[in-house]
Amino acid sequence: MFRSQVSNAPGWPQFRAAYGVDSFGGDGYFTRAVQNGYNLFYFTPDYGKRFTRKTAADAVHSCSSCHTAEALAYGLVNSDRFDAGLDRRVSFEERVMRCYAGPMDGFIPTLYDPAVRDIRVLARAVAHHLRLSEGARTDGS
């Protein structure tokens, strides 16, 4: 049965507490987008099934198989930069779209699809928790 409301995936209350999502409100558009981003990030075959051919049985099946939430946040603040391999500037959204198509053996979502937007929103929430500024590096400098 399809329902519009965001589902409660396992581990969400702990994630929410650990990364201070409640600083954006107990509930609300933004918080729900963060939650949807969490669902997509950790349970991609269930919540992003339209854009991936992977199933839970595959070794690499979700974004979290390769990335941590912190890495996602650092990825956001270091995005929108020139990529020598592609010879152009690449946005965060494009990186997410390329991930769906490549490692997830899936398809390219449209730019404003919640499957992309909510990953960015999740990254933003984590970046806020980590007090990252633009261009922050993982070595702490």
């Binding site: 956001l76 929108d80 970046a127 007090r131 500024s133």
Partner: peptide
């Protein structure tokens, strides 16, 4: 269009300003 360079360049400039002023995400 949101993919236009017009939008992307202003975003790049805004992001640079936030780096220059050391502004933190979500603050």
């Amino acid at each position: 269009n949101s993919a236009d360079d017009l939008i992307r360049d202003v975003t790049a400039y805004s992001r640079f300003l936030s780096a220059a002023l050391d502004q933190k995400m979500g603050q």
